[in-house]
Amino acid sequence: MSRLNLLLLQIAIAAAIILVWYIGSSVPIGGTCLLPKFFFSTPVDVLARIEKMFANASIWRHIYITLTETALAFFIGSGLGIVIGFWFARKPYVAAVLDPYVKAANALPRVVLAPIFVLWFGLGIWSKVALGVTLVFFIVFFNVYQGVKEVNPVILANARMLGMKDRQLMRHVYWPAALSWMFSSLHTAVGFALVGAVVGEYLGSAAGLGYLIQEAEGVFDVAGVFAGMIVLAIVVLVVDWLVTLLENRLLAWRPRAAERI
């Protein structure tokens, strides 16, 4: 299947959804619309709202803030995940002792922490960053832990026979192995950083895309809610595309999974 066909099909799906939405919300069948305007708004209204957001440029500030929180959550969470993942993998005793705590912390729904973070870090960006960090940390941590623990023993033995000592093993074997595991979860990690930021904003803030959506919901402004969600979706797609570019650069050494048809 060519790229063009793929793209056309993808656009067709969006067009179909919008069409159904438009007909349902704007064309009365037997006197009433299938999708009442109050609950579903209309594609035209939502588009007009998005246009307005970009026209008066207010939206950029919100996108900027959400992306800042996402980036901070991603880098801090990854940093902690890498350090502690390495530590656990190299010290199995520490890992064994702390195992139940890690499991409990990971299983805890992070949303319940959000209000606590607001109390601790205030309504600014740091409470959102903290929420994102708790999500990103575990993804990176588990991957790095696994990556370092399951380094191919033959590659390790070979490196040792080549005369490598601890520091060189770290640099040439453990570190690349851990990074390759981490990069393979890059999409998930970045995605969760964004989720943390938006959920945090949604639960209490004065700026950001989550705030925008929450504010619109507060006044039953359905067009505003949909407009916010669509902008968020576009931001997510762009971020994901950037991650793919980065990933292709970083993992050039890896065999591609059988190329798509």
Binding site: V154, I155, N158, H172, V173, P176, A177, S180, W253, R254
Partner: peptide
């Protein structure tokens, strides 16, 4: 030591 299995670092 030349190993039976592949022992090259795949990232290099």
């Amino acid at each position: 030591y030349l190993f039976q299995q592949d022992a090259l670092m795949p990232w290099k």
